[in-house]
Amino acid sequence: MSERAGFELTFTNPLPVDGAPAQQVVEVFATTAIGSGGYPIYVDASKIIRAEISDAGQVRMIASGGGQRPQSPSAVHRLPPADER
């Protein structure tokens, strides 16, 4: 499996409302697309969350629809290969 298989992105909600969790963790997986920085584009299962992630784990969030202002994650962790989960 590719070393770029996936990442966990943790998003922190500074103002949780109506019982929303203060943190949400989303798994994203590599696509065949390459971002403007030359790194792979990763998406979640819904394909709403899109991010270009460098080999060093730097994240650039990408809007997947009009009017979005994607929040940057507060933490990024590489997922272990599928056979180690």
Score class of each variant (00 low, 15 high):
54 S>E: 11
40 P>H: 05
54 S>R: 10
60 R>S: 10
24 Q>W: 04
50 R>G: 07
43 V>C: 07
47 K>R: 14
34 I>D: 00
48 I>P: 00
39 Y>G: 15
41 I>H: 08
58 Q>F: 05
59 V>M: 05
64 S>C: 03
36 S>K: 13
49 I>W: 10
57 G>S: 08
53 I>M: 12
39 Y>P: 11
38 G>K: 09
50 R>L: 04
64 S>R: 09
63 A>V: 12
24 Q>I: 08
55 D>I: 05
24 Q>S: 13
52 E>I: 07
50 R>V: 13
31 T>Y: 02
38 G>R: 07
38 G>I: 04
62 I>Y: 07
48 I>R: 10
57 G>K: 08
68 Q>P: 10
65 G>V: 01
47 K>Y: 09
26 V>Y: 02
34 I>W: 00
27 E>P: 11
36 S>D: 13
27 E>S: 12
35 G>Y: 10
48 I>K: 04
34 I>Q: 06
62 I>S: 13
29 F>R: 07
34 I>F: 06
25 V>A: 10
51 A>H: 08
53 I>K: 14
33 A>K: 04
67 G>E: 01
55 D>K: 11
32 T>L: 10
41 I>E: 08
59 V>Q: 13
68 Q>F: 11
63 A>Y: 08
42 Y>V: 10
28 V>Q: 09
58 Q>E: 13
68 Q>N: 12
55 D>Y: 09
39 Y>N: 15
48 I>E: 02
58 Q>H: 14
51 A>W: 14
23 Q>F: 04
44 D>L: 12
32 T>D: 10
26 V>I: 15
46 S>C: 05
67 G>P: 01
55 D>M: 06
30 A>E: 13
51 A>E: 06
32 T>V: 11
28 V>M: 09
33 A>L: 00
56 A>P: 00
34 I>L: 08
42 Y>C: 10
52 E>L: 13
66 G>K: 11
64 S>A: 12
29 F>Q: 02
27 E>Y: 00
34 I>V: 14
51 A>F: 11
44 D>T: 08
23 Q>W: 05
43 V>A: 14
29 F>V: 03
33 A>M: 01
39 Y>E: 14
34 I>C: 03
68 Q>H: 07
67 G>A: 03
69 R>N: 14
47 K>S: 15
